[in-house]
Simulated scan of single mutants.
Amino acid sequence: MKTILSGRLVVGMFALFALLSFVPVAFAQPWPTKPIRLVVGFPGGSTPDGAARAIAQPLSKALGQPVVVDNRSGASGNIAADQVAKATDDHTLGIVINGNLTSAKMLSPNLPYDPAKDFTLLSTVGTAPLILVAQPDAPDGRAFFEAASAAGDKWNYGSVGNGSVAHLGMELLKSRVPGLAAVHVPYQGNPAVVVGILGKQIQMALIPPGVVLPQVAAGKMKAIGLTSGRSPLAPNVAPLADFGIKDFQLEVWTALVGPANLSPAAKDRLMKELTAILQDEAIRQQLFNQGWKAPSTASSTELQTRVRDETRIMQKIISSQGVKSNQ
């Protein structure tokens, strides 16, 4: 009898041990376990905000949790980028632009985050050329650059902030056009830059198509040229190369990133769902209508290459043009 009881006791203990060993697995919750905060460094109505909102709803549906867009404007998007860099869980993501990952540290050595170390790079969400726009009574093409060169530093240009592609792109343009010396006026977001042109505080700016094409169509602005080759985003606007400006190719882009400590499980799930979202024709059309060309698939490798290559380009612009953080 004792032998039987002892055997039963041993079997019972093994059964209890096996049950307890599976308890954590049974109660483990897959990511995400709560709402996701999607931080955007620019105001509502801006092009990064549009990209964020285009993916937020389908991402929420796919993940089964709310994805809340949180606009934290300022410092060319660096305030929002810093919040993402310092996030301590898997439920804070960010939509960033070129400058946050490429030129920010060069221009601001005391930047509170390190673009090279503090992020998990997920994927670009949209890319676009920039359009050089001016006041509606500005001359066209080559005549515009002749007038701008003759004006020297009497003209101003606007951008979404120091270190942005729009800012550094204009500095690159100044190096390509003899006599062009327009003074930089930073704004918090492209809508404010548009107001600056309409109010005649600035004479020109580099702005994404989605923001300015309606103004151009209404005759409130003039499109001078594109910072890339021909683009379906602005099919009626000629490249700047057509006016004799050589070696000038720039794009603006927006990307989804997480903090450096983003878990592999969260990253894998995000990449899977984002790829499906970016391949959805309705969402691609929504991004296109906002002035973005969506990538064919989510790719952290492509984003890493883009950041690396553009960082080198921006370094050359900053060094050659003597761009300072107080501009």
Rank of each mutant, 00 (worst) to 15 (best):
Q321K: 12
Q65Y: 09
N110W: 01
S149H: 06
P66S: 09
D247L: 03
A87R: 00
A181M: 11
P58C: 05
T275D: 14
A265I: 12
F144H: 09
K154P: 03
L240C: 03
L9W: 09
V69C: 09
P235G: 06
H167M: 05
A104Q: 00
V216I: 09
D137L: 08
G258H: 02
N78F: 00
S76F: 04
H167D: 07
L63H: 05
E302Q: 14
E310S: 12
V84N: 01
L270C: 12
Q286V: 05
T88H: 10
A260P: 02
P32C: 06
T33W: 15
A81T: 01
V193K: 01
A294M: 05
G12A: 13
K222N: 03
F144L: 12
F144K: 04
L107I: 01
L270I: 15
G12N: 15
A260C: 11
D89L: 06
V194E: 03
S263H: 06
R230F: 10
T124Y: 04
P191D: 10
W292A: 02
V25W: 11
R53W: 08
N261W: 04
P178K: 09
A104S: 08
N326F: 13
N98R: 13
G196P: 00
V216D: 03
V211H: 01
V23Y: 12
V194Q: 01
P295Y: 07
S73Q: 09
T3L: 14
L173H: 02
M221F: 06
V96Q: 08
A62W: 06
M1N: 13
N236H: 08
Q279H: 07
D137Y: 09
N162D: 11
D280R: 07
A75C: 10
L59C: 08
G244I: 14
G210S: 13
N289M: 14
A294F: 02
Q249H: 11
I283G: 02
V183T: 15
M271I: 13
P264G: 05
S263L: 14
G126N: 03
K272M: 09
V10M: 15
Y113F: 02
L101A: 02
R230G: 13
A80Q: 01
T88R: 15
V68T: 15
S231L: 10
L38Y: 04
V40N: 02
G99H: 01
G126A: 11
A282K: 15
N190I: 01
